[in-house]
Design a protein around this nucleic acid. Sequence first.
DNA 1: CTGTGATTGATTGTTGACAATCGATCACCA
DNA 2: TGGTGATCGATTGTCAACAATCAATCACAG
Lengths: 241, 241
Amino acid sequence: MNSGVSQNFIRIPKATFRAHIVDGLRNAILSGEIPPGAQVIESSLAAQFGVSRGPLREAMRQLIDEGLLVTVPYTGTHVVDLSVSDVREIYSMRVNLEIFAFEQVWSRRDQSFHEGLRARHAALTRCIDAEDDVASIDAELQLHGFVYEATGHQILLKTWESIRGRLQLYWAAHHRAHGIRGPRREGHDSYVENALGDDFEAMRTEIKNHMARGGEQTEEFLLGSESNTATQSDLAAGGSK
Amino acid sequence: MNSGVSQNFIRIPKATFRAHIVDGLRNAILSGEIPPGAQVIESSLAAQFGVSRGPLREAMRQLIDEGLLVTVPYTGTHVVDLSVSDVREIYSMRVNLEIFAFEQVWSRRDQSFHEGLRARHAALTRCIDAEDDVASIDAELQLHGFVYEATGHQILLKTWESIRGRLQLYWAAHHRAHGIRGPRREGHDSYVENALGDDFEAMRTEIKNHMARGGEQTEEFLLGSESNTATQSDLAAGGSK
DNA sequence: CTGTGATTGATTGTTGACAATCGATCACCA
DNA sequence: TGGTGATCGATTGTCAACAATCAATCACAG
């Protein structure tokens, strides 16, 4: 189609404000700069980002779809504060999605899959050994995200991304609030070994165990303290249950 | 709170334009009033709905997130035109989600679940017997949607809703284009029997078969004609793969 | 002191106009 | 004739002002 230019170009890093603001705002939320439960005011943020309320409003709407913000018409918008049941749902969904992901990718695991997985595992291990919890969380998300990308399944990948934000928000928030340690080494070694092995059923149980470990750890803290901060998120869910 | 009025109210019949427009626009797309591939112009629709471009823009952005529209900055917005691989992904994801849904609901199936499922099955059967294909499609979506709602799993339900639109778009579009008949009776009888039975594994295979039937039928038409209309949707996916 | 109704400040919803960008068309030149 | 660059209409992106709504406050009657 086009003349034979040298390299394949990046697909349009289009300079649209909204995309840039989404990243910035999401980062501010996930980093805890804007903590869970805090109110987010359009006009303030607009001034802070140096743009009008229009683009910022659309960016916020996207983060609402991602489950990071909740809004009540004419009243206000807040950073989501996950409830116990929300976290349970996230973990059960993760187990399901990840097993499905391996089901999809299992027969397609090639050299680059092996290398990619091991590289991310190594990166995660380095972060853990350096006791950099923030980087560890990010590295773990990278590790799991790599599997979803490897499936080539767009809808699956998008679904993973739709819960990844909330998972990250939860990890980061409770890490800061309760001093929970980041990911540990042991769990991921067996995870990767099984992921690259030949026994799919073993991988299935590995995923369930892997997630269960994380789930237990977090539920302890949730139930230990009385931090059943379900108010905002329940309001947001549409008033069910 | 309020004086003792008669009935319990619906949660917020809030008069926000955007919500109303989303429904109207989505309906226009799913009904085929705006066919796949057609361009959607903000200013035109704004005039048609009698509102400004602001709210309409946000409504469109939501339909973009739902996968019904695709947009290119400064250029235009079109109704999505699903590719073969898109349909394959939708069906494989459906199988996974629905098995997970029954996994979640299996031990909680009570009287109201039985009645609700049978009621929707009866409604679907009536629509099929009446040879009302449009109503049949809707009734089938209601039947499956009931299962997702019964799980009480908010994230799962939201995920189902995120692919339901595209599924409906696909069914409706190819029903009109190729004259494919709507849902048939046979498939759903065994589906419901298994859903209310005691054998979970039987239900698992039932789901796979149920979806496989639908998948085959549609793939025939997709591959039979050269309608690999992947252009728009591939562009939209963000240029991956 | 208690409950009720008006007031007010804050925040989001909505609007119309203006700016930036894209794609196609068309003139022009080698 | 083929290709290159400018022009133009169409469409989306952005902005600042205005309207609608809500939640808290406060005065006031019982």
